[in-house]
């Protein structure tokens, strides 16, 4: 019995140690997740600087010189942005066990601000260069207030997978209360979520893949329109 009492204590110590081990590993993963997000954000900022330089070149030397490389850079940035947005959301889900993780909320704000900058740049560049990318703005809220927002994001991810080079999607989290996003919301008169804006025309309410295809094809020809 005395030996058994010792075992009871040892078992408790081992269980606590196992618990600690799992949480240390989880903390390590959290750190890795944060590092990946920070690296991605750093990459995005680098690309912005590159695009800004090219943008300045168009005003100084004329659009012919910079438009070609600018189009490539924007297309690359568009993919990085969408992937980073998805990554932040997935990592946030993996990390967010007990409360909203301030790191991800902060990164999401930074990310959304960057998206507004990118949107402004691409809109500006469309005036100078002959870009044929369709710009899609996606406004969403958290699941509790907008049950269809995740579904809309799912549909847009599917579209992006198929015609990544032909579209540029910007997703804006309306819950972040960023003044720039508020302004965009007012500008496009968005009154409900989810809402997709294609070439400055808002389409609010959940749209399935077929409906998104029809909207895109009504704007300009895409590879999916021939199907």
């Amino acid at each position: 019995m005395v030996g058994s009492k010792k075992l009871i204590v040892y078992a408790l110590i081992i269980t606590l140690a196992l618990f600690g081990l799992i949480y240390s590993f989880n903390a390590y993963l959290n750190q890795q997740r944060e590092d990946v997000v920070l690296d991605r954000m750093e990459e995005i900022l680098d690309e912005y600087q590159e695009i800004q330089a090219l943008s300045m070149m168009t005003t100084t030397f004329g659009s012919d010189i910079a438009c070609l490389s600018l189009e490539n850079s924007l297309s690359l940035l568009d993919k990085t942005l969408w992937d980073t947005g998805l990554k932040i959301d997935r990592y946030r889900e993996a990390t967010e066990q007990f409360a909203n993780d301030p790191f991800y909320v902060n990164q999401k704000r930074k990310f959304n601000r960057n998206e507004v900058i990118y949107l402004s740049m691409i809109t500006e560049m469309q005036k100078h260069c002959d870009f044929n990318q369709t710009v899609i703005l996606f406004f969403f809220q958290k699941k509790e207030e907008c049950p269809d927002c995740d579904a809309q994001s799912f549909v847009l991810t599917d579209v992006n997978k198929e015609i990544d080079n032909e579209i540029a999607i910007f997703s804006f989290d309306a819950d972040l209360d960023l003044p720039s996003i508020k302004t965009l919301k007012e500008y496009f008169a968005i009154d409900r979520f989810p809402c997709v804006v294609v070439d400055n025309m808002p389409y609010c309410g959940l749209k399935n893949r077929q409906q998104i295809n029809e909207i895109l094809c009504s704007k300009r020809p895409h590879s999916i329109c021939s199907e």
Partner: peptide
Amino acid sequence: FYSLIGYDFFNHFNWDFDVLTLNS
């Protein structure tokens, strides 16, 4: 969700495994 994209499971599924999406 898949009903919105015509149940195109194969095309949409994310085959890239990211260990960092695993949680405690």
